[in-house]
Amino acid sequence: MNSTVAEPIVAARGIHKHFGHLHVLKGVDLEVAERELVFVIGPSGSGKSTLLRCLNRLEEPSAGNITVAGIDMLDPRTDINHARQHIGMVFQSFNLYPHMTALGNVMLALRKVAGKSRTEAEKLAQAALERVGLADRADHRPAELSGGQQQRVAIARAIALEPRVMLFDEPTSALDPELVGSVLAVMRSLRESGMTMIVVSHEMGFARAAADRVVFMDHGLIVEQGPPAQIFESPAHERTRAFIGQIRQH
């Protein structure tokens, strides 16, 4: 891990999350530097999604501090809708709006949140679709697109707002294997453009090629973290080793 002099763009400290009696996050600290790509791995149920969702406050942490791009996310005075513009999120299940075209999906927040005029929003949305290689699918409804194309529209919807950070929650897990590559390619070009990214995924090849740091979570805690080579080849903890061994077998 490179020691950054600059303020981290994402700083989460002592994050706890309870769902009733279930203690899902047990004091997670995560700092992410600008332009860094952090990969989060861990067994199902270890709290990876919950952690991501706490970062943009889709989930309310039970305790802890979170700042993103200098904004105190948990301060009640923070305009959360304004803050969320700076944090793009991509979901496992795409969650495109089925009643709108691809272009409409991307335009909605540009119009309603960023306050762009119709023509301006349309221009920006078209440019975002271009970045994910779907300029020619602007008029298609989600139902008329493949899973990979839908996920790329979802990425376009997020990046159109020019976020400072992008959160990806298993972006390729719901895709047929032959469609995974197109989504990873878009993520890689995003990374090359300097986007700060936190990615929950089991795509080890992608992690190896693109991640600055891999974070291993288990039972609501970060067990260990480090450069991909270190985590994948010589993990310090037995639990990490066991998990890496498991996902290797796929």
């Binding site: 809708n81 304004h82 969320r84 999120m89 979901f91 919807r157």
Partner: peptide, 30 residues
Amino acid sequence: ISRGQWEAARSTGLSFGQTLFNVILPQALR
């Protein structure tokens, strides 16, 4: 209407009301 629709819309910064009127209701009314 699935929770994912709410979450996707809210994650882009749409308010509760904007999400309800632009994303949820058009689907629900159909």
